[in-house]
Design a protein around this nucleic acid. Structure first.
Lengths: 182, 182
DNA sequence: TATATCATGTAAAGAGTTACATGATTTT
DNA sequence: AAAATCATGTAACTCTTTACATGATATA
């Protein structure tokens, strides 16, 4: 999947691994993330497979490896877009595993953990409700995104907002229930 | 993480890999899943590490390898419970990646994909709203779960229900928006 | 001058998926 | 008799994380 995310962004514009790490953190971080090590190695593999081509460029004395999409890469991206998902993505939520097996733990200790999670999820919600998407949309000149791109991008951002809101409501409900059990 | 899920369930009662696969599918499937191949290999590694011990048992002519938790396993489980999570779990949602990069796709094709996802998420919601948890709770005799177990288990189930409801609402919103763009 | 950011990588280990492989019992 | 379920595993591959490693430039 990371391959297609990288292809998708490189298709918007040629990019370095560093660029892509920033872009991922500030736009897809909400539903997909990757460490820089994985991004760099995946880009190299994609180049070996002929999906992208790279060129070292010097800018302000900095050496940057800029990747561009190839014809084969564009074909791969389009083939992926044309084969729709027929399954749902499985959820993996560490906290829920912990909650499930917390029957023998101290209730105040569980509450501490849940309250910390509430703070962290509120922080993520604040981040998504901040300036993330407008900047992504403004970076592209209006002509290049005549289509439904902004609608789709904002929708994925709204997913993140809904998710964090749901998560916080759920945490509040669980915290309230546990507070009556102390 | 799978290690702790397996330890957690084996701590409730000695189990086989097959048992654990069923239990995972019917209780944690909502926030954690694993293929049988991963469960079997993880159990073997855990046995090598002394966290569980296995014994072949014959039942109705079937050979079953039953795993029990060891003292070291229980200590490991408790140590994990005592070190709270200080981060949130990253979300990985394939569909959102696809939506993000659907700017050049045919809108009717996107809508088909979203409507199929709606059906699939509705199915999952129906499943979670079905009989999953009561049976898990009834399987244990009431004395063995005098604590807050049912409350915690039901809360994780409610997370799944809230998640699917949120997902469907989000899909409906996006579908409605795209329908105006045809 | 120290810290942060820019920039790119490798190595090793762990987690997870997919395919292969087998054979018994139970239900239709 | 066929299909489904019970039951256990291995092999190969891919994905992901964590740690190691380096060096330049920009900011405080």
């Amino acid at each position: 999947m990371l391959k297609y995310i990288l292809l998708g962004f490189i298709n918007y514009r040629p990019s370095t691994g560093y660029d892509l790490k920033q872009v991922l953190d500030n736009s897809t971080g909400n539903f997909w993330h990757a460490h820089h090590s994985q991004i760099y190695t995946t880009l190299r593999r994609m180049e070996k497979d002929g999906l992208v081509a790279s060129e070292m460029m010097e800018e302000d004395g900095r050496e940057r490896r800029v990747y561009s999409i190839t014809e084969a890469g564009l074909a791969d991206l389009q083939a992926w877009q044309d084969s729709p998902l027929t399954e749902t993505a499985p959820v993996k939520e560490d906290l829920l595993v912990r909650v499930f097996f917390s029957g023998l733990r101290d209730i105040p200790a569980i509450l501490d953990e849940l309250r910390l999670q509430r703070v962290l999820h509120q922080k993520e919600l604040d981040f998504y409700q901040g300036t993330t998407m407008p900047h992504l949309i403004n970076e592209h000149n209006p002509e290049s995104l005549s289509s439904i791109d902004p609608l789709l991008w904002l929708s994925t951002l709204e997913f993140g907002i809904r998710y964090q809101q749901m998560y916080i409501e759920w945490l509040d409900q669980l915290i309230a229930r546990l507070e009556t059990k102390i």
